[in-house]
Structures are given as C-alpha cells and as structure tokens.
Design a binder for these strands. Structure first.
Lengths: 135, 135
DNA sequence: CATTTAATCTACTATTCCGATAGGAATTAA
DNA sequence: TTAATTCCTATCGGAATAGTAGATTAAATG
C-alpha cells in the first residue's frame, strides 16, 4: 500500500509543477486545493525540501517552490524519499540492500527472483515518469 | 514492503511444490527447512488452506499438500490471499476497488494514473508466474 | 480402546508504523 | 512592530505485524 504521505507528496508536487513560475506557493493553498490536512502537509513538504526537491521562503508571501524543472523530477526520486525502497524486499533493493537472515542462497530463492522482476518493471516506470508528465 | 507472512507463504508453497507427490508434509518439516517460526507458519498454512490452495490431513502422518498442480497456482492468487490487493492504491485495484475520498476526478489524478501503470506491469508478472517456475 | 501425533482454534502480547495534531520558534514583508 | 508563514520537536491513538501460548479436535497405530 502506498502511504498517504507519498500520495499527498506527489499531489503537492504536481500542484507546484503546474505553476511553472518560481513564485512560492503557500502550504495552505496547496492543502485546500488538494484536500490535504495542512499540518500533515507541512511535514511532507519539509521532507521534500530537506531532500533537495523543493525550496522555500519563510515569512509573509513565503511558500514552497520546485528547485528543478518538472521534467527533471522523476517519480523514482519522489518514491524513494517519501516511501522508501521501491523494491518489495530488501534483498532486491538497489539503494537499500539488506540480506535476508533466513535465506541461505539468494540466487535460488523464489521470493528473491520474483521480486527482482517486479522491481525492474516498477523501476522502469518510476524512472521514466516525471512531474512534467502530469501537467 | 512485502510482509513476512507472504514471504514465508511463498517459500512454504514452493517447498510443497517440489514434492510433487501428494503425501502430506508436516509444518515442522517445512518450518525447519525454510527457517520459519513454526507457530507463525501454522497460521499461514491455515489461511492458504481456507482459500483453497492447500489441503491438509490431521493426526499421525498428517500435514499439508497442494490441491492443484504447481503450474495452476499463480503468484497473483498467492499475493491476493496473503498480502491483499496488488495495486498500491485502492482506486486502481481490480479486486479491491475503493474510491478516494479526497479525489474529485480519478481520470486526471497523477497518483491514480501512475499507479495504474504500476499495477498493470506487476499484475502481468504475478499472473504469468506460477509455483512451477520455482521448482 | 488408549496413546501419540499433528492440525485447528482462540486469545493474547509486544513492537512498530501511520496519520495526524499541538504548540511554539524562527524568519520575512509590510 | 505586527502579521504571516515556514520550521521544529514532541506527542498520541489506532491499526497492523510478527509472533506466542495453550487448549481442542481428528487420525493413525498398537
């Protein structure tokens, strides 16, 4: 299941991408336009900022804005930041690899091989899809 | 993230599929061969039985066995039984559909369209992969 | 029939994560 | 100086995970 954090994050990013100007958009504007709890959205946008996707401006007339062009923000980036690993098991994750304690040999593990295929196909989609595709 | 329930379930099913004879295999045998907590595995196998994947025999020389040929047990079946919906959001689920309360129009929702693609590609893999592929 | 073996059922528990909320501090514009 | 806005930390209830414990039922064997 996709977390609401990621879901809301994607919606907020698309919202920002639609305003191609570099002027900041306030949290309250996004939250009411996209039906997202404002307080919850605060924490999400902060995470995206700390990970180099968004910039912000404090104070009056402040808000958030995209740091890159929409076509340079891939869904794979967003997913990894908000949702974590794209792979369904750590033993097939490219960026968050971890061995299974119970598995003597990955190469012959059914779960490993199955989920490797799933990871490949998902990654292909997430890598090729950017914010620009949703404007 | 794939739950351990599903992970263990797949491993147990593959274990059973490798013994193509119809003689029952005991929980304790599977749990020690696959490094799975026996008590936890009990509940998993019971679920698979209640969903028509496994049969069982009680008492001495009892155990679990596959009800169908390995090539007739798809990963999509197993995933839906143990993990739940294959889709990452309910609004793109074929078997567990549910509308989003916050979304005014699915057809133009970025999350919806993105996750629809992901569902299609994952489903293609899960539908075409059966236990027989892991023997 | 009694015993042993093994699945079945019910219930409980500890831990973690999710989705959200609260309240205040820091910063900026007017 | 004031109002608006992001930034930060902390907390919380509820749900889900990953088990565990113990009693019950059913079948085979002697």
């Amino acid at each position: 299941m996709l977390s609401k954090k990621t879901k809301y994050g994607i919606k907020a990013l698309v919202h920002l991408a639609k305003k191609d100007q570099r002027c900041p958009v306030q949290i309250s504007t996004i939250s009411s336009a996209e039906n997202i709890s404002q307080k919850f959205l605060e924490t999400i946008l902060l995470i995206l900022k700390k990970n180099g996707i968004l910039g912000s401006k404090k104070g009056k007339a402040g808000g958030y804005y995209l740091l890159k062009e929409p076509n340079h923000v891939s869904m794979a980036d967003v997913m990894r930041i908000l949702e974590g690993p794209i792979a369904m098991v750590p033993c097939v994750s490219l960026n968050f690899y971890e061995a299974c304690s119970d598995c003597p040999d990955e190469t012959i593990c059914a779960v490993h091989n199955l989920m490797e295929e799933v990871r490949d196909s998902s990654l292909k989609i997430f890598n090729n899809k950017t914010l620009a595709d949703f404007i």
